[in-house]
Computed example of a mutant assay.
Amino acid sequence: MKILVTGTDGQVARSLRERGAQFPDCEINFVGRPELDLARPGSAAAAIERLRPDLVVNAAAYTAVDLAETEPEAAFRINGDAAGEVARAAHEVGAAIIQLSTDYVFDGTATAPYREDDKTAPINVYGRSKVAGEEQVRSANPEHLIIRTSWVHSPFGRNFVKTMLRLAEDRDEVRIVADQVGCPTNALDIAEGILTAATSGKGSGGTYHFAAGGQCSWAEFAAEIFAVSSGLGGPTADVTPISTAGFPTAAPRPRYSVLDSSRFQQEFGFVIPRWQESVAEVVRRLVSE
């Protein structure tokens, strides 16, 4: 199977590069800027036409949640219109598409994990731009999988785990929001899940949730990071829980964005690790570097 991945440096793209070694029947091509720039209309279609893959994984995205509040045009261009262009170009060469989306498509008012058919109601620009991307992908290419994930972390790029370990290098205490709950998910697990679905031989077309098992607050997430790091002799700090009001951000966040991932696991026979396991894997790698 010939796969084209949009982007080269993001957490999921780099995880696909690493986990791709476990899927020898997949030829994975990574195309990023300047050749493929989702901010520039037409560049994605040209790259897809040149490579003519069997599958496109749209891993590139506008992910600056707070900045999107003042750059809505850029967010909607990359996450919305460009996603549709990628899906359309894939369809034109007979390729399926896997589109990555987010828990931020929901408003956070639920009291039980969100299922795929729950109504989307994003409360920030980033979430609205990702909903727009989902809608365009569905319209442009019937052979699609839309995979919503959440609180992505990994040994790569910038993420919450790396930020906490960096802060603990010179702080004894960190103040972390305790009234937002979600599912920290390892990009390496996402990559393996994507490739498992891609090679399953099952027909595409649908929306799936993919998030680590269990749930926690950001403060609990940080405490787990430091517990693992401390056990390995790495940096650690005390966690002081605070409210969302104590840490104002430009973009509002959903208070509860836990995803029910049972459909993906049942459909593709893939067991997603619990969040503590995935966090421990990432922390071990980062501390040992």
Rank of each mutant, 00 (worst) to 15 (best):
I97H: 05
I272P: 02
T163K: 14
E192K: 12
D107F: 06
F226R: 07
P122W: 08
E49Y: 00
N58C: 14
T207I: 15
Q266K: 14
M1W: 04
A140E: 11
A140G: 06
N159M: 08
N159C: 10
W218A: 04
S150E: 10
A68W: 01
R17D: 13
P241I: 09
T149W: 10
V57G: 01
A89K: 07
E173Q: 07
S230Q: 15
F264I: 09
A178D: 15
W218V: 01
R33V: 11
K202L: 15
D260P: 04
Q266E: 15
G231M: 11
F221L: 08
E71Y: 01
V12T: 13
G84W: 08
N141M: 10
A59E: 05
A191S: 11
G94L: 06
V105C: 09
A211M: 03
Y208G: 04
A60Y: 03
G193F: 07
D9T: 15
A64W: 07
T199H: 07
A59H: 04
A223P: 08
F160Q: 13
E277C: 06
S129A: 06
G10V: 04
I98K: 01
P53L: 00
N159H: 14
R274A: 14
F247Q: 03
N159Y: 07
L36N: 04
S43Y: 05
E169T: 14
G206K: 04
P72W: 08
F76S: 00
E73I: 13
T196F: 10
P72I: 08
R175K: 14
K202V: 02
Q11E: 10
I48M: 04
C216F: 00
A178V: 05
C216I: 09
A219P: 09
E18G: 02
E85Y: 02
E73P: 03
A82D: 03
V152D: 04
I28H: 02
D117C: 04
D117N: 13
E281L: 13
G10C: 02
A39H: 10
H91M: 12
S257W: 00
Q276C: 07
D238F: 01
A132F: 05
E281N: 12
F221G: 00
P273T: 10
A83W: 03
R33D: 07
R285N: 10
E169I: 13
P41E: 04
N124T: 00
A222R: 01
S43M: 08
A13Q: 06
V282E: 05
T163G: 14
P34Q: 09
G203V: 10
P24Q: 07
E220Q: 15
E267C: 15
A280P: 04
T185Q: 03
V105Q: 02
I146K: 02
P122I: 11
F160W: 13
S217L: 09
F210W: 04
A60H: 04
R128Y: 01
N124K: 03
V56T: 05
T102Y: 06
E224C: 14
L195D: 13
Q265E: 15
A223R: 15
L36E: 06
D25N: 15
V105A: 03
T149F: 10
V287T: 07
Q136S: 15
V283P: 05
D172T: 12
R128K: 14
A64T: 02
A87Y: 08
F106T: 02
A61M: 09
R148P: 10
G201K: 12
R88C: 12
G182F: 13
G84M: 12
C183G: 00
L286R: 00
